[in-house]
Design a protein around this nucleic acid. Structure first.
Length: 300
RNA sequence: GGCGCCGUAGCCAAGUGGUAAGGCAGAGGUCUGCAAAACCUCCAUUCAUCGGUUCGAUUCCGAUCGGCGCCU
């Protein structure tokens, strides 16, 4: 599994790695699953995809909702198929929760009554964040906090499954599905910030606004997961008149930097298993060569 | 040259004779089906500088420096 913050160069390294082995990439990226957002999510280009088969891209429409659970199933199947072909699956991505869902598995969510769930959701939507968090704590002693969104989930699980979320979390720990080998790409902040800045400018030059406008024109609503990503959110704001175009790049840079910092935290603390951190200040070919070398030695 | 207003963190900004709000940025962290999400914590021994008044000054007074405005 090749992971690291946004803009660090994961895709380029994966493509370079393909010159060393017959590999296929399984994308672990919660936004690249959306169709029509190629520039905005820095999807591998057509040329890159021609050189290395990619899985997990363009799975759903931007207005739809994808999830970590769906990812774990889709990616698991993709990995099985790649192995059947005698090739090496390499998971490449920056979405920590997806990586964990795949490597460690999520708890097996019992079937939840859909009608009941809708009624519960409607009810919870009327509560303010403070009340929501209070209820989550009352229904699940192990509730770790995290605001409205996570409280909502904790309440939902506790009420509909009859057991608190923390109970299911413990139950899932036992069943790990795969034993991954992590390569974490990292770089000094200043280097990463510079790359993020360059990439944000390129995205706008290459037509980010037009791309997002097209997605909006197809009926996707602002705020849906596909349109609620770093950079995309800011572009939507420009298109609906909530932000001036001359502030777009700067706003994108700031939120991308903040996202990259969260990713660094995740990969520093949340990965279970063997992990090798590589300084990505070097070029992709050099990194790929080192990874190939490490892998070859690990095999003997 | 004269008069007036202003000077608080990297940026914006509130404030009071009793020991410096808040926001942004930044840093650190949390994480089991929205995760590019949602959250949490930290971040000015000091208020342009130097004097004075006072038990006590960021606050009042004076000077100096810097900015803005008006007048000449």
């Amino acid at each position: 599994m090749l992971v690291g913050p946004t803009g660090i160069g994961k895709t380029a390294v994966a493509v370079a790695l393909a010159t060393h082995w017959p590999l296929e990439v399984v994308s672990a990226d919660s936004r690249q699953v959306y169709r029509g957002l190629d520039i905005a999510t820095a999807k591998p280009t057509a040329r890159e995809q021609a050189r290395v088969p990619h899985h997990g891209l363009d799975l759903v429409a931007p207005g739809e909702r994808y999830s970590a659970g769906r990812f774990a199933r889709d990616a698991g199947e993709a990995i099985d198929r790649i192995r059947d072909r005698g090739r090496l699956p390499v998971v490449v991505g920056g979405t920590g929760l997806y990586v964990r869902a795949l490597a460690e598995g999520l708890f097996h969510e019992p079937p939840l009554d859909a009608a009941l769930r809708r009624r519960l959701d409607a009810w919870l939507a009327r509560l303010d964040a403070l009340e929501l968090v209070r209820w989550a704590g009352r229904l699940d002693a192990g509730f770790a906090g995290g605001g409205r969104q996570r409280a909502h989930r904790a309440i939902e699980i506790a009420l509909l499954s009859g057991r608190p979320l923390s109970h299911w979390q413990l139950a899932a720990r036992a069943a790990r599905s795969i034993d991954p080998w992590y390569i974490v790409l990292s770089a000094p902040r200043a280097v990463l910030h510079r790359r993020i800045e360059i990439r944000a400018r390129e995205m706008v030059q290459r037509g980010l606004l037009g791309e997002v406008a097209a997605v909006l024109a197809h009926g996707a609503r602002p705020g849906t997961p596909g349109l609620d990503g770093v950079g995309v959110r800011e572009a939507v704001d420009v298109l609906i008149g909530r932000r001036s175009q001359d502030t777009l790049v700067e706003a994108m840079i700031i939120s991308t930097r903040q996202y990259a910092k969260r990713q660094e935290t995740w990969f520093r603390h949340q990965l279970a298993g063997e992990r090798i951190t590589l300084d990505a200040t070097r070029g992709p070919e050099e990194l790929a060569a080192e990874i190939a070398d490490l892998w070859a030695r690990a095999q003997t």
